[in-house]
Structures are given as structure tokens and as C-alpha cells.
Nucleic acid binder design. Structure first.
Lengths: 345, 345
DNA sequence: TCACTTTTGAGGTACGCACATCATTGCTGC
DNA sequence: GCAGCAATGATGTGCGTACCTCAAAAGTGA
């Protein structure tokens, strides 16, 4: 005897197949008493609906949309690649994934895109975006229309997403601090913190976590203010020179966001490349090269492959109104050094 | 128009459904020319077999066996828990998993168990075991009978397993060395290496990787010979005292295998707990507690949840004669510090 | 008790595929 | 040109479920 089927449930509950179907799919026209009988039979036999067969019978192909900013970021590009690979595989499981890039600076365009999607009859949306009021309203409307929303990488707590796929940014910052503190050793106990901008929630949280551990475990190390570069290499050069002049030399650099290539350039000009402990975030071709070259000491990352697969699994589960396997979907915060770099494919 | 189906392939290739079926399922009695025509139609239409429907039609439930040693090891226990959880979920995907523990000291018993399984008509076997000649022969026989074998945690290169699920132990050792070297800082540049035994392949490889990086990047640090404890706390106490007396104090301890609790005890007796950099392997309740308490500085681990799910996915793929998604099955080597400990459930 | 509504039963079709059977076609050598 | 065999076609059944229709039974109120 294999797994129980609807037929077994019908026999066990003493009702017809049609009634079992009505109960399982929450169709109207069944007495409470009958519902209870079927539910009990389900529990007794340990019946689990065969979702594959169910979706086959429904004939529906789950259609989901994924929205990424059109930033020229290596990380976003890496994530997109991972999503495309995962989407190709998901095709064999009756799922169609539409990937869109939205203008990062125009939240109204994003909101309009979301409205279009809602009208187009989609069964789920996942997105990576900073939480603005416009977006929040758009997402709430989407969810009110019954479309589940999944936040990727950066959480959207005020939009009440159905799920968040990403790591704890505060823990990421704490981990960076722990490594920085221990790697610094006898080097100048001063750390420079650099960010493109502090608008994104994850940057802010990383910084908070970094400070918390620095203050608690390494009180002897001085941590500077966040230097914002707004993505411009020239600004980076200026703020770094200014900071070094006014506060003196540093033993470590913590890069909150992207901009690794520009940093390498400036460090090289200053004769600091490989002489200061450098810690950053996210595994991209640039950071991989930097680790391999030896001038970056550690990268705190989240596995984009996992993010992609987890996102699709969660969207599928939501579409099927199935529960989520928390332990599988919990992303690990990864520490990457030169020695545990993943083998290049 | 949704996804193409076998019917579309038949029309496109100008053949019948039966022939498409013969080609897709590699059944005999089709001319090479016809096979080519069908294959081309598949490529042209971008046909992807609906595995859900296929498995439904096959009506077969994949039965696999998983064999773990009956060692009283926290890691093995953790792995078993993960496998049981994954197995419970796999049930809804038409897969039955039988978990066995074999006597760790009796390879003949393991071989006999494997022979039984082969006779019982099983579609796959996964196991964690040291590679002995007896086992190697048993595994070869099993594979000759068409049963795919998956090695878990510790590879079995001479038994030519269909797949290995686990991390690169050499890289694990290299990573441990990197952290040890950098964490030591101004501490006594001498490291003690402790193992239960050096019989297992992964212990040996870790040690090799550790030495390689120590030699290359930290030539000033002296690394002692491997002290074997054979799992006995009393032996651990003796060899540690002996080593400290003969070679002098150490600044770090590298624990190759298990035995974290006994180590804590002895370190405490010696007044060294928390005063030497301690690095070990695998995330278990003991090591988690040690990291939290602060006397262990880092743990190099592999995610048992991933091992479990990956093992089942690979076995399923082998049973379905489907290709394996390498990028999903590649396990990451994890570095765990206190700050990035996974939140307790 | 009768007309009425609500609840339940019986049965069919479909989803995309695997697998089986039997009939038919094409090709080979003689 | 015919036996003999390989290649192909035609057709049916079933996997577990969804969804539909129509008929029958049970329950309701007056």
C-alpha cells in the first residue's frame, strides 16, 4: 500500500468522492458535520495531497514576476544570473518566471509595473527594492488583490510581505566586525567605513551590527564615520584622502556596499593595497578576484543560488497555498576567505 | 499556447506519439534518422518533460536506503535528524527513505546489509563510511547490479560512487589554518593538533590542508604532530600534558574531529579555556555552545540540512535517470563564528 | 404531507505522460 | 514477389487530482 489517495479518504469517511473533493477544495454546500468527518479521515490516514497531480489536473502554470533594480551592480547581475538559472529549471515544474529590471531611481515606475502585473493575472511577485511609501502602497494593493509578495535581499517590513528571502544584515555587520577586530592584530587600531549610500536598509543595519560588536569586543579600535561615495570613484578618492589627512592612517577598511573595483584603484594609489585589512560584502567576480589577489581579507555573503531557488520555492508554495519549510528556506550568512572560495565553474 | 507536450513533438517531427515515446524513453527499435528528427523537434520547440506528470504516470515510488555509522557522535546524530526531516518531506514526492545505523567497527556487517538491500530491490543507496576493501567490493557489486551509490561527508574515490555529497576536506583544513594564523596574532606561535584517530579520509585531508597553508602563509608558527586520543578523554588529558611539557605552551588548538566536550574539560583543568585560540569542525550542540560561551573561536562546518536534501535529490535524479544540477548540489564550506551562529529554532 | 431547498452521490472528462498491445508499413534478401 | 523482420502507427489504460453536470437523497418549512 502506497500513500492514501482521495479514494481512500472517501471510503474511510463513508462519503463519496465528490464530497471529499468539495471538502478538500473548500467548495460550498457541505454540512459542518460532513466536513468534520472528512477532515478526521484525512488526519487518521495521514493523507497528503499530491501537489504534482493536483497542479497537473488544474492545468495551471504558476506565473510569477521578479523585479530587480537596473543598477549596474555586480551583485544584482549575479543574482539575476542565478534567478535565470533557477527559472530554467522551474520550467519543468510548471512555473513561468518573468524577470524585469525597473529604473532604480523611479519608484513610481516600479509601482506602475506592479499595477500592470496585478491586472495581468499573476500568482506571485518577488522583488528587491528599498522601501518607499509609494512602493509600500503598491505592494499593499497587490497583496489585497491576493497576490503574495516576497522580499529579496532587503526586507520590506512595513509592506508586510508574505516572506523575506535574505540574511540578517545586523548579523552580517556583527560578523564583519568580529573578523575585522581579530584580523587587525597589531595593525593601526583605526577602521574606515565606506558606503555608496546609506539609503538602503541593509547598509544601515550592517553598520549598526558592526558598531555593536566593535564597541563590545574591541573597544580599543577606533571606527570612523561612514564615508558616502554615491557610487562615484572620484568622490571615493576625495573622501578617503580627506579622512586620512584629518584622522590619520587606518589599519582596516570596511566596505558596506559595492564599489570594490574603485576601492582597489584608490588603495593602490595610496600604496595601501594589501597593507590594510579589507572586509566587504557579497560574492561577485570583483570580490572573488580581490580575495584571490589577496588584498581583500574576507567577504560576508549570501548565496545567490539559494536566494534564487528559495524565492521560487516560496512563490510556488504560496501559489499552492502550501506551508513553507522554514528550515530549508533559512539562508545562511557566509564568510568567504581566500581558502574557501567556491571553485570556479 | 502553454508549454509544448509530447503531442506537439509528434506533430512537429512528423511521427506518431508512440515513436516520440520510444525516443524520449530510449526504448529500442527506432532508426537513428527518426531519433534525430524527434530530437531536433524537441530542441526546436524547447520541449521540457513534465517530470511531475511523468512520475505520476510511472506510478513508482522511489525507495532508497541511507546508512550511517552507529558512532555516538553528535555530528552523526545531527545528520540523522536532518535526514529524517528531509525524508519526511520527500514522502510527498513519492519517495521512501529507510535509515539504518550500522556497527561502525564491523565493515562485514555493513557489506552484508548492502547485499540484503541489493536483493530487496532498492533504487539507490547513500552512506557515510570509511573506505575499506570489504566495503569497496560490496559497493562495486551494488553498482554492478544497477543501484547508484552516493557517498556522504567522506568520499569513497576507489568505489566510484555515482556522486559525493560533502565538502572539500582539504579546503576545510586550509580555511582552519588561515583563521588560526590570523587569530593567533601576538599569542604564542605554536599550535597543537588533536584528532580522535587518523583513519578517516577527511581527517587526513584536513590535516594536509592545514599544514599547507600554515607552511605557506605563516611560517613563523610551529605546528605540532597530530595527537591521537582514540575517543578517550583520559588519553586526551595525558597526551596534552605530555605535549605541553615537552614542547612548551601553545597559543592555539586545532581539533580535527569530534571530542569538543572532553577538550573543554581538559582545557579548563589546565587553565587554558578561553586563553588559546581554538578551532574545530562541524556544527553540533556542543560546538554551538562552545562558540556561544566564547572558548571556541571558529568552527568549519558543512550544512547538514543541505547534505540531507542534496543526498535525496541526487538519489531521486539517479532513479529518474535525470542529470544532476551541479550548482545546486555543490556544498559550501561554512565558517561559523559566534556572530553568525544560526538562530536556534 | 407536499413543495422546496440543501446536501450528497455518481459519473465523466481532462491534465501530460508511461507503458502495453496489436496492426500496419517499409525494407531486406532471395 | 514473397517471406521475414525491423520500424512505426494506432489505440487504450492508468497515475492522482480538479472540476463539471445531473440525479438522487435528505432535510426544511408550512
Amino acid at each position: 500500500m502506497g500513500r492514501p489517495t482521495v479514494t481512500d479518504i472517501a471510503r474511510e469517511a463513508g462519503v463519496s468522492l465528490a464530497t471529499v473533493d468539495r471538502v478538500l477544495n473548500a467548495r460550498p454546500g457541505v454540512r459542518a458535520k460532513t466536513i468534520a468527518a472528512v477532515t478526521e479521515a484525512v488526519a487518521r490516514l495521514g493523507y497528503v495531497r499530491d501537489m504534482a497531480a493536483a497542479n497537473l489536473a488544474r492545468g495551471r502554470t504558476t506565473r510569477v514576476a521578479i523585479l530587480l533594480p537596473d543598477t549596474e551592480s555586480q551583485f544584482v547581475q549575479t543574482l539575476q544570473d542565478a534567478l535565470e538559472e533557477a527559472a530554467a529549471l522551474a520550467t519543468s515544474a510548471r512555473m513561468r518566471v518573468d524577470l524585469h529590471r525597473y529604473p532604480a531611481s523611479d519608484m513610481h515606475a516600479l509601482a506602475a509595473l506592479l499595477a500592470d502585473l496585478a491586472a495581468g493575472g499573476i500568482s506571485g511577485v518577488a522583488l528587491m527594492a528599498p522601501e518607499t511609501p509609494v512602493l509600500r502602497d503598491a505592494l499593499r494593493a497587490l497583496q489585497a488583490a491576493g497576490v503574495p509578495v516576497v522580499a529579496m535581499v532587503s526586507d520590506l517590513p512595513n509592506s508586510a510581505p508574505a516572506h523575506f528571502v535574505g540574511i540578517d544584515s545586523h548579523a552580517a555587520g556583527r560578523t564583519a566586525a568580529m573578523l575585522m577586530g581579530r584580523f587587525l592584530g597589531a595593525k593601526t587600531p583605526r577602521v574606515m567605513v565606506i558606503a555608496q549610500s546609506m539609503l538602503l536598509r541593509d547598509s544601515i543595519e550592517r553598520r549598526r551590527g558592526f558598531d555593536a560588536v566593535m564597541l563590545r569586543d574591541f573597544p580599543g579600535i577606533e571606527v570612523g564615520q561612514t564615508l558616502e561615495t554615491h557610487g562615484a570613484p572620484e568622490t571615493l578618492r576625495q573622501v578617503m584622502r580627506l579622512s586620512l589627512e584629518s584622522s590619520g592612517p587606518v589599519g582596516g577598511i570596511y566596505l558596506l556596499g559595492s564599489g570594490h573595483r574603485a576601492l582597489a584603484q584608490v588603495l593602490s594609489e595610496l600604496g595601501l593595497l594589501g597593507r590594510v585589512v579589507t572586509i566587504g560584502h557579497e560574492l561577485t567576480p570583483h570580490t572573488t578576484a580581490a580575495l584571490r589577489a589577496g588584498w581583500m581579507d574576507a567577504v560576508i555573503a549570501q548565496n545567490v543560488g539559494h536566494i534564487a531557488r528559495s524565492t521560487l520555492r516560496v512563490l510556488q508554495a504560496k501559489a499552492d497555498q502550501q506551508p513553507i519549510n522554514e528550515s530549508q528556506e533559512r539562508l545562511r550568512l557566509e564568510i568567504i576567505l581566500r581558502e574557501n572560495l567556491p571553485p570556479s565553474p
